[in-house]
Computed example of a mutant assay.
Amino acid sequence: MAYVGDRIKKRRKELHLTIAQVRDKTGISTGNLSEIENGKKLPSAPALLGLSNALNCTCDWILRDDVSDNITLKSDISLDNFEISLIKELRTLSKSEQIEIFEIIKIKNKLKGEKSSPSQLDNSSKLA
């Protein structure tokens, strides 16, 4: 039972959510959520569904200790351990630093696209 609570608490903290914020998203009382996180009780089916939505993970991930730490998001995106680590590191940065890194990624992707675009290749062959 404690394992379920540990996973819920871990995920809540990864998302930087307070118990009050999870309560507001799920309707689970603060006391019940605290008991769930501390392994004193298991979430009911409706509470489990609410937690799954609030924590953006599957019910399977919350309940089963044989499910890997790759969190399957509700949007069917699966993150590997590297991606989870990358997200954790990004969260240590300020919003402006996160935006700067995002802009760098967009520029790199745009440059990759330009290097392989047919019009770019046509222009370079005309120069030769």
Rank of each mutant, 00 (worst) to 15 (best):
S96F: 11
S29N: 13
D69G: 15
A20P: 02
I71W: 02
K41V: 12
V67I: 13
T30V: 06
C57I: 03
K74M: 04
S52F: 06
S52M: 06
L90C: 13
S94H: 12
I28Y: 04
E83N: 10
D76I: 02
L42T: 05
T18M: 03
P43M: 10
S75A: 07
R91T: 09
G27Q: 05
T18G: 02
L49G: 11
G39T: 04
L49V: 06
N70Y: 05
N56D: 15
G27N: 05
E97C: 02
T26R: 00
L63N: 03
S96G: 06
A45D: 07
H16M: 14
T18C: 02
R23C: 13
C59D: 04
S68Q: 11
I71G: 08
K88P: 09
S34W: 06
E37S: 10
E35V: 00
T72P: 08
Q21L: 01
I28M: 05
T58F: 10
C59F: 01
I19Q: 00
S52Y: 06
K13Q: 03
K41F: 10
R12I: 00
K41L: 14
G39Y: 05
A47H: 04
S44H: 08
D69T: 08
G27K: 06
L17M: 15
L33W: 00
L86F: 14
I62C: 15
F82M: 12
S75F: 01
L48T: 04
K41C: 14
I84G: 11
N81G: 11
